[in-house]
């Protein structure tokens, strides 16, 4: 085992990459983590993709009892679908309705429901998103292409501590009669963060 990182393909490293590599080396030097533990975290994070979260959403759209449990006790509800959450963080699901739209951000770092969505997109970790989502959520949503009606309240959720938040998007009109797999196709990563709505059937 070596604590050397693999040679970088690009000669020019971004400032962020330099910073990450320095922190990684320090953590290993100081015995906070081992390279094996780091690799394990990365492998586990990449084992999940937004398709996993989409399955949970599709089930909630179809099964009213599951939806209630998901909103009340997400950990045990998703366990029924085979998703064992790590004990590092809790999961909470917030539901979009005709009256309220949720948007998730982590202003302090980049907390994200990795156990259901995989690693977060780069923009989720950007300073711009983290600063602006809490101050001007409607402008941020507009830039993502989502114009909310005037009668919809915006509820921004800042995941500051041990709870990771997943948005349960509204089921699109025209999706009646679709099965679970077809419904899951309508559920995008962005709709589970809250910067978009689920896709309508004709846009799949």
């Amino acid at each position: 085992m070596t604590d050397e990182h693999p040679p970088l393909i690009h000669a020019e490293r971004s400032r962020r990459a330099v910073r990450i590599l320095a922190i990684r080396r320090l953590l290993i030097e100081k015995d906070v983590v081992t390279t094996d533990e780091l690799d394990d975290i990365i492998v586990r994070a990449r084992a999940r993709t937004p398709a996993d979260g989409a399955k949970v959403v599709a089930r909630a759209w179809l099964d009213r009892a599951f939806r209630e449990r998901l909103l009340g006790d997400a950990r045990t509800a998703v366990a029924d679908l085979g998703y064992q959450l790590s004990h590092d963080a809790e999961l909470a699901v917030v539901e979009n309705t005709v009256d309220v739209h949720h948007l998730v951000v982590c202003t302090l770092c980049s907390c994200y429901p990795t156990s259901l969505l995989g690693p977060p997109p780069d923009w989720y970790k950007s300073f711009a998103y983290r600063q602006r989502a809490v101050v001007e959520p409607r402008a941020v949503l507009r830039e993502f292409g989502l114009e909310l009606a005037d009668d919809v309240r915006v509820r921004v959720v800042d995941s500051t501590a041990d709870v990771r938040y997943l948005v349960l998007p509204r089921r699109p009109a025209g999706s009646e009669g679709l099965g679970e797999d077809a419904l899951a196709q309508l559920v995008t990563r962005d709709s589970m963060i809250g910067v978009a709505e689920a896709r309508s059937r004709d846009r799949v």
Binding site: R153, V154, R155, V156, S159, T160
Partner: peptide, 8 residues
């Protein structure tokens, strides 16, 4: 009536 939710 827009709100911000924070865990504290």
């Amino acid at each position: 009536d827009d709100v911000l939710v924070v865990d504290l």
